[in-house]
Simulated scan of single mutants.
Amino acid sequence: MAGDFPQGTVHRAGDDLEAAVRADAGTAALWKRLTPLGRNEFICRVDDAKQAAARARRIVRTCEELAEGKKRPCCWAGCAHRTDKAPGRWQQAVLVEGKRRG
């Protein structure tokens, strides 16, 4: 059954994210209806967490955002790991070069 969990285009969901999504049938159905790029964005946001507590919060938020009808994570710049296209100008500045507005 582990092989039937839909993944992203670049990223694969960790066991903790998969378990959280599978824990609720409604959340699992919403996850399956996402595009591979949509799933990839959620997985990337979770994987980008530096601390376990932040990762856990992002997993909870992923399930909440799915229930809210979101198809991509809110306030996420997008996955900079994709090789099928170059990062956009905003992604390049913020994610790749580390520039922040302030």
Rank of each mutant, 00 (worst) to 15 (best):
R22N: 11
T35D: 09
A28Q: 10
N40Y: 07
G98Y: 04
R72C: 03
T9I: 08
A28G: 08
R89M: 09
R89G: 03
G98W: 01
G3L: 11
K85A: 03
K32W: 09
A28C: 10
V96N: 11
D84G: 02
G102Q: 06
Q92H: 10
W90I: 09
E68L: 07
W90G: 11
P73L: 02
I59F: 06
G14S: 15
L30A: 15
W76F: 14
V94G: 11
V21K: 10
V94W: 11
D84P: 00
R45C: 09
V60P: 05
A29N: 07
R33N: 14
K70R: 14
R82C: 12
D84W: 00
C79A: 06
E41K: 04
R33I: 01
R39H: 12
A13C: 03
T62A: 09
A28K: 04
T83G: 07
R101A: 08
C79H: 01
R57F: 06
E18W: 08
A52M: 00
F5A: 09
D48V: 03
P87C: 04
T35S: 15
G88L: 03
A19L: 12
I43L: 10
T9C: 06
R12N: 11
M1R: 11
G3K: 07
E18P: 00
L37I: 09
L30N: 05
Q92D: 08
E64R: 14
V46P: 07
R58D: 02
G14D: 12
